[in-house]
Amino acid sequence: MNKISKQIIQAILIAIVVAGCIYSSRVEYTDDVLSGMSLEKYQYIHDRIAPASQYDVAQEYMKNKKFYDSKTY
């Protein structure tokens, strides 16, 4: 392997590690938001913005937290 090939492989590996860290922090953020939410609240938001992933529900909840917290389910 020449020097350029080693640098390319190293750059690819670094990019993979960084992408993995970003993905895992997104998953952890989503889990943290959803763990503090009741199932009824989650279902209401999910049905309201469907089709939605868990991350979409967490984002919607955080954008309109006062609204969703004021509702009774």
Rank of each mutant, 00 (worst) to 15 (best):
D32P: 01
V18H: 06
K41F: 05
A52T: 06
K6G: 01
I45S: 09
K71D: 02
Y29D: 00
V57F: 04
N2V: 03
G20M: 09
Q43S: 13
S25G: 06
C21L: 12
P51A: 01
I8A: 08
I45P: 10
Y55D: 00
H46T: 08
I4G: 01
A50T: 08
M62L: 13
Y42S: 00
K65Y: 13
P51R: 07
I12A: 06
E40A: 14
E40F: 03
S35P: 02
I45D: 03
D56P: 08
A19S: 10
Y73T: 10
I45T: 04
S70T: 09
S25Y: 09
S53M: 02
Y73S: 02
I49T: 10
I12D: 08
N2K: 05
I4K: 11
K3E: 14
A11Q: 14
R48Q: 08
D32R: 15
I45H: 06
L13H: 13
R48L: 09
R26Q: 12
A50E: 09
M62S: 11
Q54V: 03
Y61D: 01
I45C: 05
E60V: 10
A52N: 07
I16A: 11
S5A: 12
E60N: 11
A19C: 04
S53G: 12
Q10L: 10
A19L: 12
E60H: 03
Q10W: 02
A19F: 13
K3G: 07
E40H: 08
L13V: 14
K41N: 09
R26V: 10
I9Q: 12
D69M: 02
E28S: 14
E28Y: 02
S5E: 12
L13E: 14
K65R: 13
T72K: 15
L13C: 09
Y23D: 05
Y55N: 06
Y55W: 11
I12S: 06
R26W: 06
K65S: 15
S53F: 03
E28L: 08
F67V: 10
Y44K: 13
E40N: 14
R26S: 07
P51H: 09
I49G: 12
K6M: 07
I14M: 07
M37D: 00
E40D: 14
V17Y: 00
K65C: 05
G20R: 08
K3T: 15
C21P: 03
S53R: 05
I9S: 12
R26L: 05
M1L: 03
